[in-house]
């Protein structure tokens, strides 16, 4: 028992399996989908999920939904490409959660430290959209195909500006190492140094995970469920969870880049992974809740409006944010 616990507490086991890895991501899924529905209901003067555990306001609604997904028969239509159809949900979920391995939890607690860990996270997070496109093709359904193609359109319009604004922070801190970036924010957080980059990245994060103004690839009222139309049962549960997990990963990156990561943290606590991890999680959680709140406020953009925003507004803004970083380096005299 003691041995098992010590093995689990090893960073290279703990990070992918517990936090920020699969366990916390899964628990977050259960909470955040309920919270999203609850927030939307409050804004629209309704109650939202209520009758599953009424004293807590239906807090375990998602447990009930998960059970339903688990026991529902996953229907595989005859005309689909079977291998691609069955494999993509697992691959999509895996690809969405994969970048967590490179996210540090505290200055000394990480699965591995690399000079390029920011690039690793960003690069791994680009894997997921490919599977959505594959899904759209494999389903042999017009709505799925349109959804897949829309995802492709959205990807080309958010990826470049999002990475430019993330990399502008790397320019500012003079490092691509997430641990170093977070440590560099001991005094002043990145969001105050470069607010343009922060806003750009925030908006594009929501765009990349189909959050509300940009819920274009799975637009319910237009194309049923986009690329996910033919999915049912636990396969659908996986694909639905994937975009939330991706948002969770990107929120962790956002918290490290702009919200100081685990700072402010008293020096003697820095070696213990608990408090820094909790702080990092709370910051990421706030970002996710804001995304859930947007759902209640915004209607869906048309695809051309979203691409307009990506190419004509966010790309110039992200280039401006790089210049802001450069000017600040010049003023402050070196990173």
């Amino acid at each position: 028992m003691q041995d098992l616990l010590s093995v689990i507490m090893e960073p290279y086991v703990f990070v992918p399996l517990i936090f920020p890895g699969i366990t916390v991501a899964f628990l977050l899924l259960l909470v955040i989908i309920w919270l999203e529905r609850k927030i939307a209901a409050k804004v629209q003067l309704r109650y939202g999920p209520l009758y599953v555990l009424k004293p807590l306001g239906g807090a375990i609604q998602m447990v009930a939904d998960l059970l339903r997904y688990l026991f529902q028969e996953p229907i595989i239509p005859k005309t689909v490409d079977k291998l691609a159809f069955i494999m993509t949900p697992a691959l999509l979920f895996g690809a969405a959660y994969l970048p967590t391995i490179a996210i540090p939890v505290s200055p000394t607690f990480y699965a591995f430290r690399n000079d390029l860990s920011l690039l690793i996270v960003l690069a791994l997070s680009t894997l997921a959209p490919i599977f959505t496109v594959v899904m759209g093709w494999a389903s042999n359904n017009k709505f799925s195909l349109i959804g897949g193609v829309r995802e492709g359109y959205i990807v080309v319009s958010y990826e470049i500006p999002m990475f430019l604004s993330a990399l502008s922070m790397a320019v500012l801190y003079g490092s691509l190492d997430l641990v170093e970036i977070a440590e560099a924010q001991k005094g002043i957080w990145g969001i105050f140094l470069n607010p343009v980059a922060a806003i750009t990245m925030l908006v594009l994060m929501y765009m990349s995970t189909s959050k509300f103004p940009f819920e274009i690839p799975e637009a319910e009222s237009e194309i049923v469920a986009g690329a996910y139309t033919e999915y049912s049962g636990i396969l659908y549960g996986l694909v639905m969870g994937a975009s939330y997990v991706k948002l969770y990963v990107l929120s962790l990156v956002f918290a490290i880049l702009f919200l100081g990561g685990w700072n402010p943290i008293p020096g003697f606590m820095a070696n213990d992974p608990l408090l820094p991890g909790v702080l990092l999680f709370i910051k990421a959680f706030i970002i996710i809740v804001i995304g859930a709140f947007l759902r209640a406020v915004y209607p869906r953009f048309r695809i051309d409006q979203a691409m307009d925003l990506g190419w004509k507004t966010m790309l110039p803004l992200s280039i401006i944010s790089i210049f802001i970083s450069l000017v600040e380096i010049m003023i402050m005299g070196g990173a």
């Binding site: 409050k42 629209q44 003067l45 309704r46 109650y47 709140f293 406020v297 915004y298």
Partner: peptide, 29 residues
């Protein structure tokens, strides 16, 4: 134009926040 649009976005978000914190519901239980 861009400034005006930004102001509208902020107004929309503020309205949403007002309703979210308002705590009133129209649902008949």
């Amino acid at each position: 134009m861009a400034v005006e649009r930004t102001i509208r976005h902020i107004k929309a978000l503020a309205t949403g926040a007002k309703y979210m914190l308002g705590g009133h519901r129209l649902t008949l239980m």
